[in-house]
């Protein structure tokens, strides 16, 4: 575990992830990216570690939340870098991980 930084959306952010942007409502993808995902991502890059994001333990996700959080990260740091550093864990709903990878890939287009 030493070479990994762990983030749990349910424990570190909210069990009810919300909309895309802060202005649209609480627990937005934008707030998650700015306050949690991006700082942890930077830390992982600096320390040459993997960033493991656990998607389980929440009530559900709107697509805009996932796109803004992960697609937004890719827009800033590039899809290749994000896919290289990021590791997604989604045991409860495995399709979320596939969706997010697609959002990351699409973000660079």
């Amino acid at each position: 575990m030493d070479n990994k930084i762990l983030v749990s959306i349910a424990n570190d952010f909210s069990i009810t992830p919300g909309p895309r942007s802060k202005e649209e409502g609480k627990f937005s993808g934008e707030a998650f990216r700015l306050n949690i995902l991006e700082p942890k991502f930077k830390e992982a890059v600096e320390k040459n570690k993997k960033l493991v994001v656990n998607l389980d333990g929440v009530l559900g996700y709107g697509t805009s939340f996932l796109e803004e959080a992960f697609g937004g990260l890719a827009r800033q740091y590039g899809s290749e870098k994000v896919l290289e550093v990021l590791e997604l864990v989604s045991v409860e709903e495995p399709y979320f991980a596939d969706d997010i990878i697609n959002y990351i890939k699409d973000a660079s287009k």
């Binding site: 909210s14 069990i15 009810t16 992830p17 919300g18 909309p19 649209e24 409502g25 609480k26 627990f27 937005s28 009530l59 559900g60 709107g62």
Partner: peptide, 9 residues
């Protein structure tokens, strides 16, 4: 009017 995801709980 806003997105209230917490209402889902």
């Amino acid at each position: 009017k806003n997105v209230s995801s917490e209402l889902g709980l």
